[in-house]
Each structure stands twice: as structure tokens, then as C-alpha cells.
Design a protein around this nucleic acid. Sequence first.
DNA 1: AAGACGGGGAA
DNA 2: TTCCCAGTCTT
Length: 322
Amino acid sequence: MPWKGIRDPYRIWLSEIILQQTRVDQGEKYYLNILKHYPNIQALAKADEAAVFRLWQGLGYYSRCRNLLATAKMIVEEFEGRFPENYQDILKLKGIGPYTAAAISSFAFNLPYAVVDGNVIRVLSRYFGHFQEADTTTGKRFFAELAQECLDPKHAGLYNQAIMDLGATVCKPALPNCPECPFKKTCFAYQQQKIKELPVPKKRAAVIERDLHFVVLENKSHLLIKRRSGRDIWQNLYAFPQRDDDVLMANKLNPSKKQAPDLILEQTLTHRKIKGHFYRIPVTRKPQALIDSDHLWVPISELSHFAFPRLIISFFQKLNYL
DNA sequence: AAGACGGGGAA
DNA sequence: TTCCCAGTCTT
């Protein structure tokens, strides 16, 4: 891992944000790419927001990107570019919760705060044989206290790195390599053959289906895209105006409910199954009425300048636009 | 306390 | 398919 052994809080911060709910293999190239464009927090703070989102495209959990920008600006403007050096102040930053605050505190400043992530929960629950559910308030508190007791306060960074490495490489979720584990002799789960029962799995919300009706206004060279805002999914990414969008209504280009879509594409997420209905409407020129700053009439050749969710990229690929 | 938020790799 | 990942924020 390219961030291993780094003490620069900026790089640690960036890597930890990227690795939230994201595998090392998946996040690594994003980390290197973003670091190449923005080698320090000053560069990131004055970055063009859309450009950073473009680099983030495909990683998921886009609020991380938004908070990353906000925190970079905050640190540069309020703290003269110096990363806060104590846990409580680090925890206050946007996008940084207990895990990331402990990671930065211990890796960058060797402060005695134990990280608690999926790896740590797994290792501790198996080793000690604790059947608490980790996604409840009491369960979280329990594992946080246990982790803090296990921490070697003199070597917090090393300890945190070690227990997460153990979880990632030996004490894996499925098929852990117990015979090679240095703790096998005193591990509850291994000795009692409870590996498959620990950790106790989280309750999982049902996957709900959702239909999105996208209207693609296009001529030979251009099409209309819309920046997504509000509280909905894919904030700050670009897609198309949806059926009943004000601009479509104002230009009398809204497809009727009876009209069949030209294309249907699906994308399954952790908690949603998105069904995208695409209605292609040929137009001769850019629609005029009610166009605001979120609606962009862009050349097809310049689509790569914008960040889109996977579903929309699939649409473009289907049409050979990308 | 529960739900929202992406995407991908492994079994 | 199902699980779940170096989690955090909002309601």
C-alpha cells in the first residue's frame, strides 16, 4: 500500500477517507491519482470541485468527496493549512468519524486511540468470543472499549496497523487462515470452532426497487445533462433531467406516461435496485425555457469532462458516446 | 435506532 | 446471488 508508513497527515487523511467502506485494491489507484493532482492540502483546497468529482467518479459514496473538499478548505482557511493534532479536533472535521479520527491520530501523531473498523470487530469478536452485535449502540461501545484496552498506548500506530493487517490478510471474513495465525492457540473462535458464527452479522435492510425516468434531449452533436442536487442519490454527479423536470415541462418536451422508454438499464446497489428508463427525444436546437446553471447543453465529445454515476456511463457506452 | 449512501470483489 | 468492505451523516 502506497500510504504505508506515511506520517503526512494529509496523505493519511486522504487514504483513510478513500478506504471508508472501500477495498484497498479498489481505492489504491484513486489515491495515487488524486495525490498526483493535489499533492498537498493547499492544492486540494483551491481545486475545482468538478475536477475532483471527476477523479472520484466510480468510487461511490460521493459525500466523501464533498466533505473532503469542505475539510480541505476549512483547514487551509481556519487553521492556516495545518492539520489539527489532537483527536477531539480531528473528530470535528466533516467526513471524519471515530474510525478515521483514531487512524489519523495514531498514524500521524502516534496518539493512543484504537481504531475500530470491520477488521478490528472481526478479530476481537473471534479472539475473545464476544457475540455482541457490532451495529448497535451498546455493541459499538463495547468493541470500542475493548479495542482501547487492547491498544499498546506507546505504539498506537503500529498496533492499529497490525490488527487491521491481521484482519485483512489472516483473520478474513470467509475462509480465514487460522493455521497460520499467530494467535491460534488462544483464539476462542478457533479453539471452540466458532469461526463461522463470529462476528455476529449485521442486520441488513431489504433492497428496494426504484424507477428513475431519464429524458435525453439530443441532436447530432449535443445533449442536455443535469447536475444532481438536493438530498437524493448521486449528489453532485451529472445525469439527465427526469420526467416532469421543470425544464422539460416548460419546453413542452416531457414524455407522456404512456410512452415506452427507448432503453432500460439496471444497477443494483447495496440497498437499492435502480431501474433506469431512458427516453430519447430528438431536438433541433438547445431547449431555451427555464434553463438554469444545473442544466448543461454539452457536446457529446466533451462528456468525459463530467462525472457520471455508473448507470449513466452504461447508457453512454450503449450508444457509443463514450 | 434506523436509514441513506456506491461500487466491486470474493465465495 | 449474498456478503461486506480501513464508515459517516441524517433523520
